[in-house]
Computed example of a mutant assay.
Amino acid sequence: MQFSIGIEYALHCLLHLCSLPSEKSVGIKELAAYQGVSETYLSKVFTKLGKAGIVHSVPGANGGYELGRSPENITFWDVVEAIEGKKSLFQCAEIRQNEVLLDKNNLPDSYTSCPCLIKVVMTEAEEQMSRYLRSKTLAWLHGQVKSKIPEDYMNETVQWFSESKSRKRRG
């Protein structure tokens, strides 16, 4: 199983949105430049985040994106579902029903009518992962990052985005 790079892009960019003073927004161009990632791809990621209500766009010359709800109310799982969709990770095709030696007359109905045990295990695993990722919020991530890096770095990040907006208006 592999999640798309869009989840990493989204989480890193959302982390920066958490650091900004309220009422401040950041454009895709600035976020992409700061992270060193594709502006086109990041724009697609933010379109998905917007549809999920995780971010919303702010129109105008000083517009961009800001969080659509508080960091405490945005979980990692919200981001995964926004980027990857809500479809189950494991798709059971019930291939056991096609087995060459399967003679439905000699097997109890419970074999063919009960849920596939492989599907049961995979579904339980996905539910555990989902539960764990729902327990991690952007607020938690922001707190963890703030505790590990110097405060000056966080301040420089906010300043970089502010200056980037100023350069954009002048340029």
Rank of each mutant, 00 (worst) to 15 (best):
residue 16 H to P: 00
residue 16 H to V: 08
residue 17 L to V: 12
residue 19 S to D: 15
residue 19 S to T: 14
residue 20 L to E: 15
residue 21 P to R: 15
residue 22 S to D: 15
residue 24 K to H: 14
residue 24 K to Q: 15
residue 25 S to Q: 09
residue 26 V to S: 12
residue 28 I to H: 02
residue 29 K to D: 15
residue 29 K to M: 06
residue 34 Y to V: 07
residue 36 G to S: 05
residue 36 G to I: 03
residue 38 S to Y: 11
residue 38 S to E: 12
residue 38 S to R: 11
residue 38 S to H: 09
residue 39 E to K: 09
residue 39 E to S: 10
residue 40 T to C: 00
residue 40 T to G: 03
residue 40 T to L: 02
residue 41 Y to R: 08
residue 43 S to H: 10
residue 43 S to A: 11
residue 44 K to E: 13
residue 45 V to G: 04
residue 46 F to A: 07
residue 46 F to P: 01
residue 48 K to C: 01
residue 49 L to K: 07
residue 49 L to S: 06
residue 50 G to N: 10
residue 50 G to L: 03
residue 52 A to E: 11
residue 53 G to C: 04
residue 54 I to Y: 03
residue 55 V to W: 08
residue 55 V to Q: 13
residue 56 H to Q: 12
residue 57 S to H: 08
residue 58 V to C: 07
residue 59 P to I: 07
residue 61 A to Y: 05
residue 62 N to W: 07
residue 63 G to P: 07
residue 64 G to F: 01
residue 65 Y to T: 13
residue 66 E to S: 11
residue 68 G to I: 05
residue 68 G to E: 11
residue 68 G to T: 11
residue 70 S to C: 06
residue 70 S to D: 15
residue 70 S to V: 13
residue 71 P to Q: 14
residue 72 E to D: 14
residue 74 I to V: 15
residue 75 T to P: 00
residue 76 F to M: 12
residue 76 F to V: 15
residue 77 W to R: 09
residue 79 V to W: 10
residue 81 E to K: 09
residue 82 A to V: 06
residue 82 A to N: 09
residue 82 A to I: 07
residue 83 I to N: 03
residue 84 E to T: 07
residue 85 G to L: 05
residue 86 K to E: 14
residue 87 K to T: 14
residue 89 L to P: 00
residue 91 Q to H: 10
residue 93 A to G: 01
residue 93 A to K: 00
residue 94 E to M: 04
residue 95 I to V: 09
residue 96 R to A: 05
residue 99 E to T: 04
residue 99 E to K: 07
residue 99 E to Y: 01
